[in-house]
């Protein structure tokens, strides 16, 4: 009975997504987007749904939202080649340097081979195997050399990789949905340090109630921006409603 119910849900979902593809093909992007967003509310970790939704936004001319959705898909799975190329294209169009031309493509592929979530999981697995090897040694007085050293090595490698990834723009990204001012403190009475254009990817450093601290490493700018002007991409509760919020 349970199996039958699950099968029905899957069937309904695939029918809906087929409808979304059809609408996209007919250039009815808004209608197609509505279906993808409805699906995303149920499957929050599906990079392909984010990718398709981003395409709809792009076709509708909402580049900042398209960029946010491509980045979200990239964070979940950085190996989707279509997503990577679209992300590169739109970042160029919006004046964001997410992928530097000076760094070889292969290096980027290695650096972004796994998602943050996958690296985190590997660190945990390495730690568990390290604890197991220690347990064997303490309880059975038997030193499992191979298991111990490989676990230590893996823990070091994955932890370093994770620490390196913390410097990436995709670690805590946010995007400006309007042209906005950056202040030197968390209210409008502070000095305006810079005016930041729409669709600019920034790093979210601290999230406050009304203002958030952001950084733009390329320009060496750090300051506070009103929360209503930025879209937090990595937020657990990703705001599926579009940029009309303010």
């Amino acid at each position: 009975m349970k199996f039958l119910l699950l099968y029905t849900v899957i069937l309904l979902k695939s029918q809906n997504l087929e409808e979304a593809s059809k609408l996209y093909k007919e250039n009815k992007y808004q209608e197609s987007l509505n279906i993808y967003i409805a699906a995303l509310k149920k499957e929050k970790l599906n990079p392909y749904l984010y990718y398709n939704a981003a395409n709809c936004y792009y076709k509708m001319g909402k580049q900042e939202m398209a960029l946010a959705y491509y980045i979200k898909a990239f964070i979940i799975n950085p190996r989707i080649s279509y997503n990577v190329s679209n992300l590169k294209k739109i970042s160029k169009e919006t004046g964001n340097e997410l992928f530097s031309n000076e760094i070889p493509d292969l290096l980027y592929k290695v650096y972004y081979l796994l998602s943050d979530m996958e690296i985190k999981l590997l660190i945990h697995i390495s730690l568990i195997s390290l604890i197991i090897s220690l347990s064997i040694f303490l309880l059975k007085s038997k030193f499992t050399k191979k298991l111990f050293f490989s676990s230590v090595l893996c823990t070091i490698i994955f932890s370093s990789w994770y620490l390196l990834r913390k410097n990436s723009i995709f670690y805590m990204p946010a995007i400006t949905i309007e042209e906005a001012d950056i202040f030197s403190g968390p209210n409008e009475k502070f000095t305006i340090l810079a005016t930041i254009p729409k669709a600019k990817v920034v790093t979210l450093l601290n999230k406050g109630e009304e203002f958030s601290q952001i950084g733009i490493p390329q320009q060496n700018i750090k300051g506070w921006i009103k929360n209503s002007y930025i879209f937090n991409i990595k937020e657990e509760e990703f705001k599926y409603e579009d940029s009309n919020r303010k």
């Binding site: 593809s21 699906a39 499957e43 990079p47 398709n52 395409n55 799975n77 979530m117 999981l121 945990h124």
Partner: peptide
């Protein structure tokens, strides 16, 4: 831009990874 994915794979893998990472 590249075209959409007409057949969307399930997100079970990513959900599982996240769950394991959370409970590990």
């Amino acid at each position: 831009i590249n075209y959409i994915y007409e057949k969307i794979p399930s997100s079970t893998f990513y959900t599982l990874i996240k769950k394991i990472a959370n409970i590990s």
